[in-house]
Design a protein around this nucleic acid. Structure first.
Lengths: 197, 197
DNA sequence: AAGAATAGTAAGTGAATACTTACTCTATAT
DNA sequence: ATATAGAGTAAGTATTCACTTACTATTCTT
């Protein structure tokens, strides 16, 4: 009949901006007015793309995980020896942490888990994140335990925790960058096994 | 002249309740009306004890650290062999994690660090927390590095991270309690050194 | 070109909320 | 006893904010 809908394209176009705002301000402090301003559209246009503010946030949670997983795939794309996969990611993470607001979104989401939809989204994200880490640290080492003596799943949780503090340290400037990177790399090595460089 | 002020006593009496509400709802979702309701007083009475909502939250951040540090001192009060101090705390933490809303307050505070006062409070809290962990894992092992090969300060950050994920796992029920406890204990052992039990 | 659905504009609305004000009651020092 | 400062009550206020509505302007199909 008439104009074909562009909502799909527009959602895709605006979502990164929405992500950015949520990661800067957190869920509650982000107002729909601010989202509209930053997206350079009116509020009701956002409401045509998503039913409400919560839906915008849920889309953010999904997207933020997707983009992080994508980054990792890029890093590993040129197929290094599987034993080096972990080291590559550790290298990358220790330097580029927090660049895409991943943890800021996670933190603000964690204070909203009384809401079932948000809880489900966060739980899903963590499970996939943990799985992703597991799959990356496993191949290099036979089956079962790592060199450190830890089962893969446990070491993976340790790494997730390490990434979390590391981001907190970064945000709060608790350590100078170099020192933080060394800390990340050393503790990560300790968890997955191998010498400490 | 007249009645002696009881503000001191009343602050002390109400602060634990205020802490509880902030840890349940986070900073933004906590309304002064709800705080008053839970404290069973009127709003303006809270405003006589603290100048504004932020001050109530800052008091919460301080108190939540104090009470955690106090707990640890209690645990170590009956002077076990210094080598066992770490194991005791690990034991305690793996079981009693999250009981006092510590991490919920931390998470909600982390999304408010654009505010300088809150930032300073959180930075202070983390520094003291890290110091506390350091002082607890150091004595058992000579000077410098731990059995794991990690410097004490690094291992301490690792433990802080571990405690963080562990609380997230608890809140999101990502693992059944027993498994979470085993994970915590194993990864902690890996970080400070010593056999994995 | 006409018709129709979508994109965009601008103003508004009702509820929530941090904080206030004006007041009464109560305990204490003298 | 009583004057006085603090404790408690109750209503209010200005603002913010998620979400809506009524409208105009586009762009596509036929």
């Amino acid at each position: 009949m008439a104009r074909p809908s562009q909502t799909e394209e527009q959602s895709k176009r605006l979502l990164p901006i929405v992500c950015e705002v949520f990661s800067e301000l957190g869920y509650r402090r982000t107002t729909t007015a601010e989202l509209a301003r930053r997206c350079d559209v009116r509020e009701n246009i956002l409401y045509r793309l998503w039913p409400d503010k919560k839906a915008m946030f849920l889309a953010t949670i999904d997207d933020i995980f997707r983009s992080r997983a994508e980054k990792w795939n890029e890093i590993l794309a040129d197929r290094p020896a599987p034993e080096q996969a972990v080291d590559r990611i550790i290298e990358y993470e220790s330097h580029h942490q927090g660049e895409h607001g991943f943890y800021r979104v996670v933190f603000t989401a964690l204070t909203e888990i009384d809401d079932d939809d948000i809880r489900v989204a966060v739980v899903g994200m963590y499970k996939r994140f943990h799985q992703l880490v597991c799959s990356q640290i496993k191949p290099g080492h036979g089956s079962g335990d790592l060199e450190s003596g830890l089962p893969t799943e446990m070491a993976a949780w340790g790494l997730v925790g390490l990434a979390t503090v590391s981001n907190i340290i970064r945000e709060l400037k608790l350590l100078p960058p170099r020192q933080r990177e060394r800390m990340f790399a050393s503790v990560a090595k300790c968890l997955v096994g191998g010498e400490i460089s």
